[in-house]
């Protein structure tokens, strides 16, 4: 089988109070769904979809991120089990599209993580406004990103594949100009 080549493969950065690292492969599904399909979707996924804006739900190794009122990004282990799960659904009132390779992810951690993100992201990332578990599609400089706060000083950032080099370099430029 052909080799998998992740963007940002083997890049790494760490400095005082900041570490930036690519996150390995994940299965990702862009889920759009009608209210009537929620129950059956939640059953096959084994988790409750977050219905509140800017929130996420994690159960076992799956995380569902609220992106819009009928849109979620589902993250899971890279074993194609998500798309298989959706394949079992009878309902037609949803759309599950495999976007595993469309996005790639970067982890930003350390006490300066918020400062590094706030060079390009205009949102209020204080714990009060953006608590652990909060997530949002937003911008980082000229790239669109999805941001998920996984810890007080830890973020999971998703961007489209071809934007990852730009986002990575912008993060590094920020991390070296605090």
């Amino acid at each position: 089988m052909a080799n998998l080549e992740l963007p940002l493969q083997s890049r790494m950065f760490a400095n005082d109070g900041i570490a930036i690292a690519p996150i390995g492969s994940l299965e990702r599904v862009s889920l759009r769904a009608d209210d009537s399909a929620f129950a059956s979707i939640e059953k096959v996924l084994g988790l409750t979809l977050p219905k509140k804006p800017k929130t996420s739900v994690t159960k076992d190794d799956r995380t569902a991120l609220w992106i819009g009122p009928d849109e979620w990004l589902i993250l899971g282990q890279d074993n194609a089990s998500l798309m298989q799960a959706f394949g079992k659904l009878r309902s037609q009132k949803f759309s599950a599209v495999d976007v595993s390779h469309r996005n790639c992810a970067i982890q930003i951690s350390g006490e300066n993580a918020v400062m590094v993100l706030n060079t390009g992201c205009p949102q209020d990332l204080s714990l009060k406004a953006f608590p652990v578990g909060a997530c949002s599609r937003t911008v980082y400089a000229k790239a669109e990103i999805i941001l998920l706060r996984t810890g007080e000083n830890e973020f999971h950032l998703e961007c489209w594949r071809s934007f990852s080099d730009y986002v990575w370099k912008f993060l590094l430029d920020s991390a070296t100009s605090l």
Partner: peptide, 12 residues
């Protein structure tokens, strides 16, 4: 209308 759009430009 029950139809949804997803960009897959970079998936493929």
């Amino acid at each position: 209308w029950k139809v949804w759009l997803t960009s897959v430009s970079e998936q493929w």
